[in-house]
């Protein structure tokens, strides 16, 4: 997907963003990989914060150079030339008046950015995300005749329309952060927080947990996919449907194993008797880009590896390793899951 050419609308923003992004990339030696970067804004809020970042970085750099310049001058200039610096006036001008003037400008600017960032919009797509150790339960509530469904570790949003994510936590404190789309919001048990943003260009971004939440805090990420409206509606329609029936014997065997191993006591597969609410909803697990909360690309191999070695790959998660399957069993089980598109 070519991210640059599909950006829509906002022509003035496009030029400034491109230039600004180029500047930032020049600044950062590593360059911008992009999928999880506050320096590569893909939405209005992220862009607004990005500008704030840029202005403060530039201003801060100038002030820093000024202060160190004055300091070095005070040390190394000949005594008669630096004498004018050595009085109370220096403190009053440099330490009192100058910061007061600069900050009197910065503070209102910061507050205005704050006012305009993360503003709930009428008609925004509502999504609920619940942080759990160490994955994300994502719910799309019923809306205008479209029925509710649940997925995990990925957030699919339509490009150009506002989204409001309602977050909370099922256990400990997590924090929901998609750097490309805006700031972070904590997920706190007993509290309900909201974060509003708009993805301005199609693409795949990455979100992570930003509040330390225990053993596998490091491996708690998710994908954000911004789709064009029609593609989004198609995805949504597919997600609403119950799980696909297996159409090959190999896959049916996988489903039987799924049933026999008791997977359904923790996982839901809508349309089957699997109705456990503890773990992620697997109705359309095959359609997701990654597994293990943003850890591995989703394919039969990784699925099989995950099932057999959960505790080795991501020690401390709630799901035990299912090491007793034979290789063939694992393949069919994984193939069944992979078929749940």
């Amino acid at each position: 997907m070519d991210l640059k050419t599909t950006r829509q609308g906002l022509p003035w923003r496009r030029t400034v963003t491109t230039r600004a992004a180029a500047f930032a990339c020049a600044l950062s030696l590593a360059g911008c990989s992009g999928v999880q970067s506050a320096l590569d804004p893909a939405g209005g809020d992220a862009l607004r914060i990005y500008w704030l970042t840029l202005i403060m970085t530039l201003g801060g750099t100038l002030i820093f150079l000024l202060v160190t310049g004055v300091l070095l001058y005070a040390i190394f200039a000949p005594p008669e030339r630096r004498a004018w610096l050595g009085g109370r006036r220096t403190i009053v001008v440099g330490g009192l008046a100058f910061p007061i003037v600069v900050l009197s400008g910065l503070l209102p600017y910061g507050l205005i950015v704050m006012r305009d960032t993360d503003v709930p919009m009428p008609g925004a797509l509502q999504v609920e995300v619940i942080g759990e150790q160490y994955w994300w339960r994502v719910k799309y509530p019923e809306e205008g005749g479209k029925s509710e469904f649940s997925t995990a570790n990925e957030l699919i949003v339509p490009v150009g329309s506002p989204v409001t994510v309602t977050v909370t936590s099922a256990d400990v404190i997590h924090s929901f952060w998609i750097p490309n789309l805006g700031g972070k919001i904590d997920m706190i048990p007993g509290r309900i927080n909201r974060l509003s943003f708009t993805a301005e260009r199609p693409g795949i971004y990455r979100g992570v947990c930003a509040e330390f939440c225990g053993d596998q805090h490091a491996r708690m990420a998710f994908d954000v996919v911004a789709l064009e409206r029609t593609a989004f509606e198609a995805w949504r329609a597919a997600q609403e449907k119950p799980a696909r029936e297996p159409d090959l014997p190999f896959l049916s065997r996988g489903r039987a194993l799924f049933r026999a191993a008791g997977c359904g006591s923790c996982h839901v597969v809508r349309g089957t008797e699997a109705d456990g609410a503890f773990g992620p909803d697997l109705t359309h697990v095959g359609s997701r880009r990654t597994i293990g909360a943003g850890q591995f690309p989703n394919n039969i191999g990784t699925l099989a590896g995950w099932i057999a070695n959960t505790q080795h790959i991501k020690p401390g998660v709630r799901m035990p390793s299912y090491g007793s399957f034979t290789g063939e069993e694992l393949r069919s089980l994984a193939a069944y899951l992979e078929s749940l598109k």
């Binding site: 009192l96 007061i100 900050l103 009197s104 503070l107 209102p108 507050l111 205005i112 704050m114 006012r115």
Partner: peptide, 17 residues
């Protein structure tokens, strides 16, 4: 100095809901 700080402390009322 307090006069400045107190004034800053009141600015949000003019900007935010």
């Amino acid at each position: 100095l307090s006069l400045v700080v107190i004034l800053w402390q009141g600015i949000p009322a003019f900007i935010l809901p």
